[in-house]
Design a protein around this nucleic acid. Structure first.
Length: 130
DNA sequence: CGTATGACGAGCC
DNA sequence: AGGCTCGCCATAC
């Protein structure tokens, strides 16, 4: 990853670092918090190219279906699902988790302002403009 | 600068 | 519910 990702990717990582254990956020949710309402795929790209030396709980970001989206990690010990189960999250028979139970509420006002600056309120995100 | 590529998502069958 | 199509957005080439 380029050395210039210091704005968007950095914001994304910062947000993910604020997801508490046993809670999960969707790619779209992180994207909205990062300021790119329809940039879910970009969040995926950001986490995909996450530097190893950065401490980011990437496993807590899943898709809107409540399923892990990695696919390549069937490894029972290092796979995304395994990491989440280790935190106490339970998946159903179809490999999905209940977002109503484990879904993260998002950044609180203080965290939002720390990220975007004071004076800016958290938008209701209709995700439809343009 | 155009095209391809996703760890996505919403809408339609 | 499950599968497909299309739109999205930052990057890589």
């Amino acid at each position: 990853m380029p050395a210039d990702d210091r704005s968007l990717f950095r914001r994304i990582y910062w947000i993910v670092q604020h997801i508490p254990p046993r809670k999960v956020a969707t790619y779209g949710q992180v994207a909205r918090l990062a300021g790119i309402p329809r940039g879910a795929r970009t969040v995926g790209w950001a986490l995909h190219s996450l530097p190893d030396d950065l401490e980011v709980p990437w496993q807590r970001v899943i898709n809107a279906q409540g399923r892990v989206s990695t696919g390549w990690d069937d490894d029972p010990s290092t796979g995304q699902r395994a990491l989440l189960e280790a935190e106490g999250i339970v998946f159903d028979k179809q490999g999905r988790l209940d977002l109503k139970v484990y879904g993260w509420a998002g950044l609180d006002m203080a965290e939002w302002q720390e990220l975007h600056g004071a004076g800016t309120g958290i938008p209701d995100l209709p995700a439809r403009p343009k």
